[in-house]
Design a protein around this nucleic acid. Structure first.
Lengths: 210, 210
DNA sequence: TTGAGTCATTGACTTCTGGTCAACAATATA
DNA sequence: TATATTGTTGACCAGAAGTCAATGACTCAA
């Protein structure tokens, strides 16, 4: 990587960091592009070298924490799908909590923005989540953990719906309840209920999920 | 009602109708206030006689259909709570479908907008839904259908989370699946699972919810 | 070493739109 | 009929997103 590339990468990083801090603190709508660039120490126009729209920086913010979850799941090979999903739910809400309400609000608002049609089809946060979960289910079917007639697309939608429902509800209620408490008390029951009819594992009764 | 009041009511109605049509067709962000007022046949400034912010018209749109659901539920006195909720979920998604993706998108986006702090505390759509559901649960506890230690606030949050999760997911996937199909295949299982541990009814096993 | 080409950076500028407000006109009231 | 009230109007303002031509630091091949 030459000097030019290093410097460009550094500029991008500064923008993302400045953006995250400002959105966390004041909320997406309350700040403008110039606030971000000022904090990052660059000119306004530079923002548009790295992002097409003001909104695009929000997706960037989710990339790191959610990338980590994906890695963790790959290391869980062999574990029951309910355990993987339980981990996913748990970590998802952990990220939600650490990113804060303002960032999460914007993730969901952005996903619902009809103008948000990135060139890259996977550019939307929820599509990334969707593909990741679908992969887990497909693997479970392929190793015989789930029945062959499991409606993968539908189940994936259901799980995404649970996750975004929790996140949305948490934001709506202004962070009234503890996301992790929520996950513990609720998600596991739901995961159990969603999969009961499709699961094959003999040792299911011994699963950690109750 | 005198002439002035009648005419004002009519102007408001024209604005809501025009707004609904335009949002349905083009989406909230793609239209501006002048588009709405032009279609309604009034001047731009008139909009702000009736609504504080452009966003406020979206809440107005949900008032009629969701008001109807509330009325229906009041007529269901005596029925099991699972049946009431099943009806609620069903009718909720019916409204979601009939209002269309663009309107639903905006409902959720609006609920997540930190600037959306109407004077009237119940001015936010989700708070209306919340109070309505909480009322149903409270009644169920008072008549002994649910145990006294039922965590009403938490369960209400969970149900709201299910509803908004479904709606959000439907919008995200661009209306890919049938909302009512979703309700039938999924919600009933979830309702069942959410309440299982709190329900008292002897005839629960005979409940229509399976 | 050099100089032509590349590309990140800049910030003034354009464009758009949400929201305001003072003047006006239609209606109510005494 | 005169005065008060209140819905209506549209020019205007403010603010912010996004553009673009000029700049100059850096790259690389000769």
């Amino acid at each position: 990587m030459n000097k030019r590339q290093t410097s460009a990468q550094e500029t991008r990083r500064k923008l993302v960091t400045a953006g995250l801090e400002l959105i966390k603190e004041k909320g997406f709508d309350a700040i403008n592009v110039e606030d971000i660039t000022k904090k990052a120490g660059v000119a306004k126009g530079t923002f548009y070298t790295y992002f097409k729209r003001k909104e695009d920086i929000v997706l960037e913010i989710s990339r790191v924490p959610f990338g980590e979850i994906a890695e963790e799941l790959q290391k869980m090979e062999g574990l029951a799908i309910t355990e993987k999903l339980s981990h996913y739910f748990h970590r998802f809400m952990e990220c939600v909590e650490s990113c804060g309400i303002n960032v999460c609000r914007q993730w969901t608002r952005d996903v619902l923005d009809p103008n948000n049609v990135p060139d890259n089809k996977d550019g939307q946060k929820w599509k990334y989540d969707f593909e990741m979960l679908k992969g887990i289910l497909e693997e479970a079917v392929s190793i015989g953990e789930l029945k062959n007639d499991t409606p993968i697309e539908l189940l994936t939608h259901i799980i995404i719906s649970e996750l975004y429902g929790m996140m949305t509800c948490w934001c709506m209620s202004d962070g009234k309840f503890e996301p992790l408490d929520w996950t513990d008390r609720f998600c596991k029951i739901q995961i159990d209920s969603i999969f009961k009819q499709y699961i094959r594992r003999i040792n299911y009764a011994d699963s950690k999920i109750k």
